[in-house]
Design a protein around this nucleic acid. Structure first.
Lengths: 349, 349
DNA sequence: TTGAAAGCGCTAACAT
DNA sequence: ATGTTAGCGCTTTCAA
């Protein structure tokens, strides 16, 4: 960028003042006389002066911007979270820098380092499906960078966290399918060690138990890469459908998994709800427009973003180091469509 | 951000060298002896030194990052474009800063100013639906900031641009509907003065003419806010459906418009393709999963992002001022689903 | 081959 | 009430 911005120096020179006087005048310091202030302010206005945030960041080691790391912005859940984040951040005078990990640990690492080196004041992150090593976050956290986890949280870093009751969302979905009379409810899940996977799986198991069924590991498939690539989901589902105990219903463990699962069912001409019942986590806004309309576990994504940002700004703006952290748990909702409505088959003669 | 990063100074102190020597050693300057270099490099490695990009930006007035402004990341088209952008940018050593205008001129302005002040090396932008005044972009362009427009381009700023053949996309869609026997094809469009609106409208008109129909302004509705809010689309469609010449088909002029239009049709129980034929611009990846499956004009979004980024980096890295600019025009594809298949009504007896 | 010093834009402690 | 100076981390001219 070659273009020269107007600086304090220009103003100082033009007005025959020192840069510090100008600086103080601009920040309305009590030490500056009203006349000087007026003069400076007017001239600054006239030549459209804007402080250089880079210089400010360098000096103050803060930037009034917060960093976001999500796996995919194309994912409705995350784009809604981001809208929630922006809705708070802008009002409070913060800019927002969005990055995507694409479920890659290395990309996450690189993004986090980039953000940190750019003097973001705080970080909002939902870790990637590949992330197990937390050094990069632990290190920053230890050094005092405010971090709030949302959605996919991690256990070992003590800070504010915002999630939903994942176990309940999964329980409700699975329970509903079982109550409908489906017998073999498979679970299509994200990477095994993610918080959301563990919690959702717990809900799934719990529903099985409550319905008198024992947990069957063969009915669970994990997508280590979050099912971002269709092929991964395809493989998982091929596996599920190729075994003896063919599932008659599926619980989709995330937005991406749900979408790719639908694509699979369509491609293989497996009809919902006749051939298979389905309920999945999803924040797509078209679920009622699908055929059949989709039963989904919906997360209050916008709220999650708002809440997480509120907590982050609290950390950022706190005068003294924050010692007590809390984990906010919001509620998902189960929205029933046609995909989970078991159709009683006519009895064979 | 309180945490202290390792600086060149630390290295210098530890090794009993001057900061300038360290700096030179790190950038492998010919002036530095091999031993010193080795020593510095090893120590830097050991303490995990990372140059502070903020300091670099301040000094060099460039940041190795590029700014993006789109209306909505939740829009599939844009998120795909962004993925295309990232695919090139990262490989070439650039970071990417994503911002959303939410179709608001003021938000766009604020984002552009933020990005510019953050020393982005170049800007990729699809202007908001509200944007008519181009001062903010013209000014930066005049000062030498490399800008590449994509999707919604502007006429009066001379630089590289990447679009698709919007007129053809709209023509193909409209023509197809007319050929199917639909008579009253309405057009649901974005803000009137956007490049994409003008071009798509031209294609629409052209198709009308080619099919022996004259253009009827009553069949066109504009959404000044891009149809981002459902209410805006609702109003537009209420208007279309309330008039005498009730449309029997709709051409949806953008992703957002298409999605919200579908929602409207569902809400009003208007069935495709029986009650109304539909083809719209859309990059949603679920179009085949809808009921009925959707006929869409699909844009090569990822390609657009790649191409635009390539051009931008060309501008950024060019030694001398670039004088000749080109406008790349990619091709949309018409993908036919069920929503546009006119069902011949049984003849009345 | 290395070091000292200036400067990028800004703020703030320390004069005056 | 205003100015001088130093410093944030880094590069780079100039000097040694």
């Amino acid at each position: 960028m070659k273009f020269e911005a107007v600086t304090i120096k220009d103003i100082a020179k033009a007005l025959g003042l020192s840069t510090s006087t100008v600086s103080r005048a601009l920040r309305d310091s009590y030490e500056i006389s009203p006349e000087t202030k007026k003069q400076v302010l007017e001239y600054a206005q006239k030549i459209n002066y804007r402080p250089n945030p880079i210089a400010l960041s360098l000096k103050e080691k803060r930037s009034h911007s917060i960093g976001i790391v999500v796996s995919e912005i194309a994912n409705n859940f995350f784009s809604q979270v981001i809208n929630g984040i922006e809705s708070i951040a802008y009002d409070r005078g913060y800019n927002v820098v969005i990055t995507q990990s694409h479920e890659s640990y290395h990309r996450e690492l690189s993004n986090v380092q980039y953000l940190a080196s750019r003097s973001i004041d705080g970080l909002l992150i939902s870790v990637s499906a590949e992330t197990q090593d937390l050094q990069h976050l632990q290190g920053l956290h230890d050094k005092g960078l405010p971090i709030v986890f949302f959605d996919r949280v991690v256990e070992n870093i003590e800070t504010h966290k915002v999630t939903i009751d994942n176990a309940r969302g999964a329980f409700d979905a699975t329970h509903y399918l079982l109550q409908q009379g489906y017998q073999q409810v498979a679970a299509l899940m994200n990477a095994e060690y993610l918080s959301i996977t563990r919690e959702r799986l717990a809900g799934y198991k719990n529903a099985m138990n409550k319905n008198g069924l024992s947990f069957d590991p063969d009915l669970v498939q994990y997508c280590r890469h979050g099912g971002l690539d269709y092929e991964e989901v395809e493989q998982a589902l091929d596996q599920l459908f190729s075994q003896q105990k063919r599932p008659d219903a599926i619980f989709g463990g995330s937005d991406t998994l749900t979408t790719n699962c639908l694509r699979y069912l369509k491609a293989h001409n497996i009809r919902m709800p006749e051939d298979i019942g389905f309920i999945g986590f999803s924040n797509i806004d078209l679920s009622e427009l699908l055929s059949p309309s989709l039963s989904v576990v919906r997360q209050p994504a916008f709220e999650i973003g708002k809440l997480a940002t509120g907590l982050l700004l609290e950390l950022i703006e706190s005068k003294r180091p924050v010692k007590t952290f809390n984990t906010q748990v919001l509620s998902p909702s189960l929205l029933i469509g046609e995909s989970s409505q078991r159709i009683k088959k006519a009895k064979k003669l």
